[in-house]
């Protein structure tokens, strides 16, 4: 019996692990990454108060404002702690070096993120099926797939399954867009 395995699932299983482990960011970039969520939450909270204050009766605002208060108290506490721990770090790396290392480690994931963003905006424009062909082919290519027959079988097999299950069986009409509508007319 010969097996070689990496213990990746152990890493996946824990929600609490730091996925940027192995890439040490310079202080400013660490601060951006670690403060991103609490700062966004604070901005959203301010916006919520801005759009609801004076427009909705106070008795109905007590609940959302209670939620906002607890969330922001914890966020401020976290921001304080994060800033302190970032400040405590005695060395700071060069930004270029850290970014290059990060890109090298997460290259395929970054490509995946970019392709996914393009994909979700492409769906209503070109149609679900054509956008999916683009997304799947691009992701496979960037992750090293060079076998056209296998790639083709996977792409058209899955889209055929989706067509049969969702369009024919459930009766859903995915966005048809420019390309899909032309293709379906031809078919």
């Amino acid at each position: 019996m010969t097996t070689t395995a990496t213990s990746t699932a152990q890493e996946d299983s824990s929600q609490e692990e730091n996925e940027t482990d192995g890439v040490e960011f310079p202080r400013w970039l660490s601060a951006v990454v670690r403060l991103l969520l609490p700062v966004i939450l604070m901005i959203l909270s301010l916006n919520y108060i801005n759009v609801t204050w004076g427009r909705i009766q106070w008795s109905n605002l007590r609940y959302p404002y209670f939620i906002i208060a607890v969330m922001n108290l914890c966020s401020i506490w976290i921001i304080g702690d994060e800033l302190y721990s970032i400040y405590q770090r005695d060395k700071s790396r060069a930004t270029d070096e850290a970014v290059q290392e990060f890109i090298a480690k997460w290259r395929t994931s970054i490509f995946f993120a970019i392709i996914s963003i393009i994909y979700v905006f492409l769906v209503p424009v070109t149609g679900f099926f054509s956008a999916s062909v683009f997304a799947m082919a691009s992701i496979m290519y960037t992750s090293g797939v060079r076998s056209l027959p296998i790639g083709g079988i996977v792409i058209f097999g899955l889209l055929g399954f989706i067509w049969a299950t969702f369009v024919q069986f459930i009766g859903v009409n995915p966005p048809s867009g420019l390309i899909d509508s032309v293709v379906f007319e031809l078919i």
Binding site: V120, V123, A135, I139, L158
Partner: peptide
């Protein structure tokens, strides 16, 4: 995973869409 990931992406996209038939829900999912 290079075959699995794109398949899951497309399956989740149609899955998010199918609930309300809104393309917005796919963007919201992402």
């Amino acid at each position: 995973t290079e075959y699995l990931v794109p398949c899951i992406l497309v399956l989740t996209a149609i899955g998010a869409f199918v609930i309300r038939n809104l393309a917005f829900d796919i963007r919201f999912m992402l």
